[in-house]
Amino acid sequence: MKQNGAPLPSPLGALLVRDLKIGRRIGGAASMGVLFFLCLVAITPFAVGPDLALLARIGPAILWIAALLATLLGLDRLFQADAEDGSLDLFLMSDTPLELIVLVKCLAHWLLTGLPLVIASPFFGLMLGLDARALEGVAASLLVGTPALTLIGAIGAALTVSLRRGGLLLAILILPLAIPILIFGVAAASGAMAFLTPFLVLCGLTLAALALTPFAAALALRNGAE
């Protein structure tokens, strides 16, 4: 047992710290998700018109679609960056299961992209004329729903890891799978009376994603490795 000097963090801890560091430094794409989310929300009134009453009605849907696209289109580099510089091979050679590594990478991605969306959504909701109650609904549903988007998107990222233009294909693959999350997310967000039922179903979907997607993504990574 060679033990010398201060111990290094656990593999998963080190991976989380590394991904957060990379995301925030120059060249990292941490703030891209939120900016893309803002742009999507911003262009809707130009299409629909400045009438706040109308915008308030479709506000939750706009915010959710923007969050969905911002998350999916930010995921194509999740594994590709590691595959290109050889880190992915080392993940496969670590004694830490690949499934947990996938989970930690999704957590890092969610902290850099998903969470900022949740924090920013009430402010952008103001621009769509949402009232306080609707803003809470959107923020709560996004808080619970975006992890599921990241997890399911990770499967797409793992499948398209060796493709040149994987980004769009990822969205095409994963959008159909994300429909349930979108349905219950928007229902919870704009649910005037029934907030709880769609919200709990959304929680269920997220927990299911948490349990199942790492296996699918890890499998895809193992088979995709060239």
Binding site: I26, G27, G28, S31, M32, L35, L38, C39, A42, P45, P50, L52, L126, M127, G129
Partner: peptide, 27 residues
């Protein structure tokens, strides 16, 4: 309401998006 899509405010808002794009591109 906190926000109205008034012409002048909206133009400044679009300018704000362009500024954010520039800062992001620098990084």
């Amino acid at each position: 309401t906190w926000w109205v899509w008034d012409a002048r405010l909206t133009s400044v808002f679009v300018l704000f998006l362009i500024y954010l794009g520039i800062v992001a591109l620098w990084q």
